[in-house]
Design a protein around this nucleic acid. Structure first.
Length: 572
RNA sequence: CGGGGCGUAGCGCAGCCUGGUUAGCGCGCCUGCCUUGGGAGCAGGAGGUCGCAGGUUCAAAUCCUGCCGCCCCGACCA
């Protein structure tokens, strides 16, 4: 492709709206332009990168035995009512009515549609298992779109749905997809990790997220340095402590005045104890029902774990006023003893002895309180966030917290959708069973953003070869010099003959501009034809990632590039 | 939705507080000259409903009211 013919409007300055690096570079590099909040147009370079990811995804999905389909984006409300999600899904589902007043929505995901298709077309165990996927634009009316392609309202997603005869087969397919996802992200040249994840609103029994490791990621994940355990913070288990504490004498529980001491730090300092000897009482609203949660003073509640324990969809912390309305106690002095609302405790609290709690009275705390003697709780579970001080729940090894960008998510769905939509097949006895389903998503457009978040420097993008819009960029720095231009043209033709994807910067621009643009758009290999050819008969190959430069004759350069690229593409 | 901020040329901004000529600056764009290994230089030029609608005023980018859009911080997710 000739640069002079390409719509590639690079920007010297960063548009004010872009905060994160991938957003900035995608805008500056002329990959995308915003139409409206969370909705972007893909320009040729942006599309090329998207296509690269799509191609890898298709090859690996096909290899894994899945078949590609393309499902409608506009979906009837009735189908969503059947699954119960018309009510459940919330405002993220963009709803509208057509001219006949039929209610519809824009597909944020396709469990309903695919299950409907399969229930109509597949009736026999002989046609199973089946895994159907598509690559399609999804629309989710995000509360707050941001970060460019990282969290748009409209985005390109690969979603796959598997239908199996039983759990065993479904789990085999889940593993198949787990392996396939590993291959996909490896081929994309990304550093990533599969982590145990919460199943969220899609539901189902277990699930993994695939996280691209990048400091700018929105999710915090926990990985074990000593084994393969990795999990999303929402899900990360805390290793149960060895039971129970040596026999400690239970001291007498006393009320002490703690004037104005509300925060854990202030209270413990005042009392001369460690935050580990205090239990804090936090009030949450779980589907609007108040519940008090007990955790050790230096720990944090993990709301998703709490929601799972309570079977609640929405869990939020109560504000000071709500707390007072529900308990009659100002925040800072809440305690479990005598509280009238539902009370749950983190597992670790059980092992504590003689600890401090709020007295449920302004300016007072209780010391030497003990669970079982001074108060009871309704339920006990792992409810806190893990910390780097915890050890791995699997191997007791060292844990590390890192940031990640979720680019893929796989779920074992079970039969929740097939039951809701009454999707059944007959087994070899003629008996009807519900399909056992799984679903598997990859945020294709997000993968491109994540690749940039993970691979860039101060000058611009450094694309991994497999997802780069072009593999090589040729700079002709001697446009007015016939000999130089002829060689540049020759190399361009030769590389294209080798099926190498090449962008040829043949613009009538000064060298500085070409170099800066080349760095910005991040094509992995740069081949410069300039005055060194005139003087020494050599051209220059430079690797964007490490700046490594070699000088070769034009013929050698073509051969060298072809072999480097081939090797790199096939080593993954 | 709650909290904060912004809307002036394609992009980045100044001007607004304290109303008053042809609304500026840098980058980009067009023409010519010149230059050609890291976003050159000179000369000339095009480009603006000052987000929209009302209002106050002799006079509004500037003051007031309402609306719209966008960005950032929290709850959602590929």
């Amino acid at each position: 492709m000739r640069y002079s013919k390409l719509l590639l409007p690079t920007l010297k300055e960063t548009p004010a709206e872009a905060e994160v690096v991938s957003h900035r570079l995608l805008l500056r590099g002329g990959f995308i332009r915003k139409l409206t909040s969370g909705v972007y147009s893909y320009l040729p370079l942006g599309l090329a990168a998207i296509r690269k990811v799509e191609q890898i995804v298709r090859e690996e999905m096909n290899r894994a035995g899945a078949q590609e389909v393309l499902l409608p984006m506009v979906q009837p409300a009735d189908l969503w009512r059947e699954s119960g999600r018309w009510e459940k899904y919330g405002p993220e589902l963009l709803r509208f009515t057509d001219r006949h007043e039929r209610e519809s929505c824009l597909g944020p995901t396709h469990e309903e549609v695919i299950t409907d298709l399969v229930r109509r077309e597949i009736h026999s165990y002989r046609d199973l298992p089946v895994n159907l996927y598509q690559v399609q634009t999804k629309f989710r009316d995000e509360i707050r779109p941001r970060f460019g392609l990282m969290r748009g309202r409209e985005f390109i997603m690969k979603d796959a749905y598997s239908f199996d005869i039983d759990n065993e087969q479904a789990e085999a397919e889940y593993r198949n997809m787990y392996d396939t996802y590993h291959r996909i992200f490896e081929r994309c040249g990304l550093a990533f990790r599969a982590v145990e994840a919460d199943t969220g609103t899609i539901g189902g029994s277990f699930s993994h997220e695939f996280m691209v490791l990048a400091d700018t990621g929105e999710d915090t994940i926990v990985i074990c340095k000593d084994c393969s355990y990795a999990a999303n913070m929402e899900k990360a288990r805390v290793k149960p402590i060895e039971q129970p504490p040596e026999s400690v004498d239970l001291l007498e529980c006393n009320k002490v005045e703690t004037p104005g001491k509300r925060k854990v730090g202030a209270v413990t300092e005042f009392l001369g104890i460690s935050p580990k000897q205090l239990v804090k009482t936090l009030v949450y609203l779980a589907d609007s029902q108040p519940v008090a949660v007990l955790v050790r003073g230096d720990h944090e509640v993990q709301p998703v774990k709490l929601g799972n324990l309570l079977g609640a969809v929405e869990v939020e912390m109560a504000d000071d006023k709500q707390v007072f309305d529900v308990t009659g106690v100002p925040t800072g002095y809440l305690g479990p003893a005598g509280l009238k609302i539902k009370l749950v405790a983190d597992r670790e609290v059980v092992a504590m002895r003689n600890f401090a709690i709020g007295a449920n009275e302004k300016n007072y705390h209780l010391i030497n309180a003990n669970l079982g003697r001074d108060f009871e709780v309704d339920e006990i579970d792992d409810l806190r966030m893990v910390t780097p001080e915890d050890s791995c729940p699997e191997c007791a090894g060292r844990l590390e917290l890192t940031k990640g960008i979720e680019v893929g998510h796989i779920f074992k769905l079970g039969d929740s959708y097939s039951k809701a939509l009454n999707a059944v097949y007959q087994d070899n006895q003629g008996e009807e069973h519900h399909f056992v389903m799984g679903c598997y998503g990859i945020g294709v457009s997000r993968v491109v953003a994540a690749a940039i978040e993970q691979n860039h420097d101060e000058n611009g993008i450094i694309f991994p070869l497999p997802v780069a819009p072009f593999q090589v960029e040729i700079l002709n720095l001697g446009l007015k010099d016939k000999a130089i231009s002829e060689v540049a043209e020759q190399i361009y033709n030769d590389l294209e003959k080798e099926s190498i994807e090449v962008l040829f910067d043949d613009r009538d621009e000064r060298p500085g501009i070409k170099f800066k643009d080349a760095d910005l758009i991040g094509i992995p290999y740069r081949l410069t034809v300039g005055k060194k050819f005139a003087s020494d008969g050599v051209v220059e190959i430079r690797k964007r990632a490490d700046g490594h430069t070699i000088e070769l004759s034009p013929d050698e350069a073509v051969r060298e590039l072809a072999s480097m690229i081939n090797e790199e593409m096939h080593s993954a």
